[in-house]
Amino acid sequence: MGIEIERRFLVLGDGWRAAVTRSRRLHQGYLAREEGVAVRLRVTDGGAVLTIKGPGHLARPEYEYAVPLAEAEEMLGTLCTGRRIFKTRHDVLHGGLVWEVDVFEGPLAGLVIAEVELDDVARVPDLPPWAGREVTADPRYSNAALASAAAPPRG
């Protein structure tokens, strides 16, 4: 079983842009979301992955499986209607870690969230100056919740 340990922060300003090492566009949809479990389908850079995430905020079980691209695109279009996200993900190095800065599109335009994956729940990352309020435990900012949102959360 894989465990994802991740912290999420709202992003302040554009100070992160100068340190981007890689960018890619993501299209993801949610096949199911119930009682803290989410089944996500993600297409990026010509590949597709099905991810099953268990309950939790900071640390949670995570399983990933490759999916044929044509089938993934079909599922996104037919099974994920009303539960999709379009965003560009930028990798930014800071404090010896790769921060993933997601710039959302469509109804979520204007929302920018940074995620950092950790190897231990006790690890406290060096926060970059553009990391704003932490939203790790705020369920409104989970990608599964955002996929169904008509607009970015406020507050």
Score class of each variant (00 low, 15 high):
K53M: 09
V39G: 11
D102G: 00
G96F: 07
G56Y: 13
F86S: 14
V98H: 01
I3T: 14
P61E: 03
R133G: 06
D45L: 07
Y63K: 10
G47K: 11
T44Y: 13
G46V: 02
P152M: 13
E35S: 09
G46P: 01
G110A: 12
V121R: 04
K87E: 08
G2K: 11
R89L: 08
R140E: 14
V20F: 01
S148W: 14
Y63M: 12
G110E: 08
A151F: 14
L108W: 05
M1F: 13
E134Y: 01
A48H: 01
S23W: 06
C80R: 08
V11H: 06
A114H: 14
E117V: 05
P55T: 04
F86D: 13
A48S: 05
V49H: 13
V103S: 13
R83Y: 04
L12Q: 15
G13M: 09
R33V: 15
Y63P: 07
T81H: 10
A48W: 00
G82K: 09
S142V: 09
A144V: 07
H90Q: 10
T51E: 13
V49A: 15
Y63I: 02
L146C: 03
L79C: 14
R140A: 15
L127F: 02
L111C: 00
L69D: 08
S148C: 08
D119S: 09
L111N: 04
P55E: 05
L31T: 01
G56T: 09
A122T: 09
L10F: 06
G77E: 02
I3N: 11
Y65P: 00
V43C: 12
C80I: 12
S23H: 06
E35H: 09
L58S: 03
Y141G: 00
L93G: 11
A131S: 04
G46T: 00
A144M: 03
L127I: 05
I52K: 02
A150S: 12
D102T: 03
M75P: 04
I113R: 08
V43N: 10
P55K: 02
V43P: 02
P128T: 03
G82H: 11
A122C: 00
H94G: 10
V49Y: 08
A147P: 12
P61K: 01
R123A: 15
L146I: 09
A72P: 11
A32P: 04
L12G: 11
T78N: 04
A66Q: 03
V43T: 07
E117P: 03
D119P: 00
R123I: 10
G13L: 11
T136R: 03
V67F: 12
D91G: 03
H94T: 05
G36V: 15
G29W: 02
V112I: 11
L58K: 07
P153H: 05
